[in-house]
């Protein structure tokens, strides 16, 4: 490249060539910039189009919110959360002071601190949703991976389970939800419940919908273990457990993680839908409440929630990728 560009630097094409030479020298930098720049351009174009298109769409609650309105509402929601938290803190300190006074007069008095009874804010709802999705996904993993291993290892079991998997896999969360709700309220009766019923309902619905990709991928991965490696294991007379631990699991880890990532994505989507439908606390309920509320800010607030849902989904997937890099041998 450099010899080419030195031949005729005076003329127009030569100058271009030398310029290209420099460009190629900076190729790596350029590709790094590209990786940052192009996504940025994409986002900016989207924001621009949104900004221009939004006022054209009129709803009964006024024009569709543009990026600026949404930003404003995001700030407002954050502010509400801060205010709420300040009030909650004050509420607790007040109780503490009162308790201290009581104890100073009567050391044996029983004192209690009650939690602030205010409504959950947007941020609280995000927290609830995150806890629920993680719990539901965890339960799904704990069920799907061992079951997938058994299905993958045993041809007969596989044949028996296959129709069930094929039928239950495409079921929408909306169909499961009423059943789960009824079953949970009927079976989970306790005076001092460890979990809210709503939490259990959402979590189980998430589990039921999200365990299939992990189950299917795990069983495929396990069934596809290189037969030569299985023969090595047989020659070594590895026990069943050692065989599973040292040969089957490591060799199907890549397939399992592919399934886990799909499952987590599904879990997050399903959770929002389930929360909306059943009015269980979480981001879905926030969206539903704003929709019912129907104030002029509602659409902007729902849009904030939509973006938050998308961004959290993205972060969850990234988190899974990080775990995969840590665990999988082929990364």
């Amino acid at each position: 490249m450099s010899t080419l560009s030195q031949t005729d630097t005076q003329t127009g094409p030569g100058r271009w060539l030398s310029l290209m030479g420099i460009l190629f020298t900076w190729q790596r930098l350029a590709s790094a910039a590209q990786q940052l720049l192009l996504p940025l351009v994409g986002i900016l174009v989207f924001l621009g189009a949104w900004h221009l298109a939004a006022p054209q769409v009129n709803t009964s609650l006024g024009a569709f919110p543009g990026p600026a309105d949404v930003m404003e509402q995001a700030g407002a929601l954050w502010q509400e959360h801060q205010n709420q938290r300040d009030r909650a803190e004050k509420y607790v300190t007040m109780q503490e002071e009162r308790n201290a006074r009581i104890l100073s007069t009567n050391p044996d008095a029983e004192v209690r601190i009650r939690a602030y009874p205010g409504a959950p804010t947007f941020i609280d709802q995000i927290g609830t949703s995150l806890v629920t999705v993680v719990a539901g996904f965890f339960l799904a993993t704990v069920i799907a991976v061992p079951l997938g291993i058994v299905i993958g290892l045993n041809r007969y079991f596989n044949a028996a389970m296959n129709p069930l998997i094929q039928i239950f896999k495409p079921v929408s969360p909306l169909a499961w939800l009423p059943l789960v709700t009824m079953v949970v309220s009927a079976t989970y009766v306790s005076d001092d419940p460890m979990f809210e019923k709503s939490f259990l309902t959402s979590m189980i619905t998430v589990t039921l919908c999200s365990l299939w990709p992990t189950l299917i991928n795990t069983s495929f991965g396990v069934a596809a273990v290189n037969p030569d490696l299985v023969n090595v294991s047989r020659v070594l007379r590895l026990s069943f457990w050692t065989h599973v631990r040292k040969v089957v699991l490591p060799s199907s880890i890549p397939a399992i993680f592919t399934g886990l990532r799909v499952s987590l994505g599904i879990a997050w989507m399903v959770l929002i839908a389930a929360e909306m439908l059943s009015q269980n606390p979480g981001l879905g309920k926030f969206v539903w409440d704003e929709f019912q509320n129907g104030s002029s800010q509602s659409l902007s607030r729902i849009m904030v929630a939509v973006l938050a849902i998308g961004f959290i989904g993205f972060l969850l997937d990234r988190g899974m990728l990080v775990v995969q890099r840590k665990v999988a041998w082929n990364e």
Binding site: N226, D228, L229, N231, V232, R234, V235, L236, R237, K246, V247, P250, S251, I253, W329, N330
Partner: peptide, 20 residues
Amino acid sequence: NTPGPERAVVFQNHSLMPWL
């Protein structure tokens, strides 16, 4: 009638565990 380490096998394509 069963495989065992006293009859070790070198497989055609090495068959090492790729994760070890």
